[in-house]
Computed example of a mutant assay.
Amino acid sequence: MKIAVEQPYEDVMNALVAKGYEAKMFNTDEDVTGYDIGVVRAINEGNTHEFNFPVVTMKGMSVDDVVQAVEKKANLLQ
């Protein structure tokens, strides 16, 4: 499972890698394709079309919360 993690959240990326996911960092202005799930700081209502995969919004969540949310989405995709 490939996870795109918005910079600068290296702690989230490292936590996902420790759980066995293939996680890579991306910049907000980068074209992000080929991933199964994305982790972003926040998403605007009008920007949901930017991603062609489910997205976890980190706003107000701890690293553990984000990992749990990614795992839930990953389980739904399988």
Rank of each mutant, 00 (worst) to 15 (best):
F51Y: 15
V67S: 04
R41A: 12
E71K: 12
L16Y: 02
Y9L: 09
T57D: 03
A74D: 13
T33W: 01
H49S: 11
Y9P: 00
V40I: 14
A69V: 05
K19C: 07
G20N: 05
N47Q: 13
D29C: 05
V56I: 13
N27L: 05
K24R: 13
G20V: 06
Q68T: 14
V56D: 00
I3S: 10
K72I: 13
V66N: 06
I37P: 09
H49C: 09
P8M: 00
V32I: 15
E30K: 01
M61H: 12
Q68V: 12
V66W: 02
N75H: 08
E10S: 13
Q78R: 11
L76E: 15
V66R: 04
V70W: 01
F53D: 08
M13D: 03
N27D: 11
D31G: 09
G46A: 09
V56P: 07
L77W: 06
D29N: 10
L16N: 03
E22H: 09
T48P: 00
Y9N: 12
A23F: 02
A74V: 07
P8N: 02
V63Y: 01
L76H: 11
A18F: 00
G60P: 01
V66Q: 04
D36Y: 01
N27W: 01
G60W: 02
D64S: 14
V17N: 00
G38C: 11
F51E: 12
L77R: 08
H49D: 11
Q78N: 13
S62E: 08
V56Y: 02
I37V: 13
V32D: 09
L16D: 10
G20F: 01
T57I: 15
M1V: 14
L76A: 14
T57A: 12
K2Q: 13
E45R: 08
T57N: 06
E30T: 09
P54C: 04
K73P: 05
Q68A: 15
A23H: 07
D64Y: 02
D31V: 15
S62L: 09
F51Q: 12
G46N: 12
K72C: 04
I3N: 10
K59V: 11
L76V: 11
V56R: 00
T57Q: 12
T48S: 11
Y35K: 03
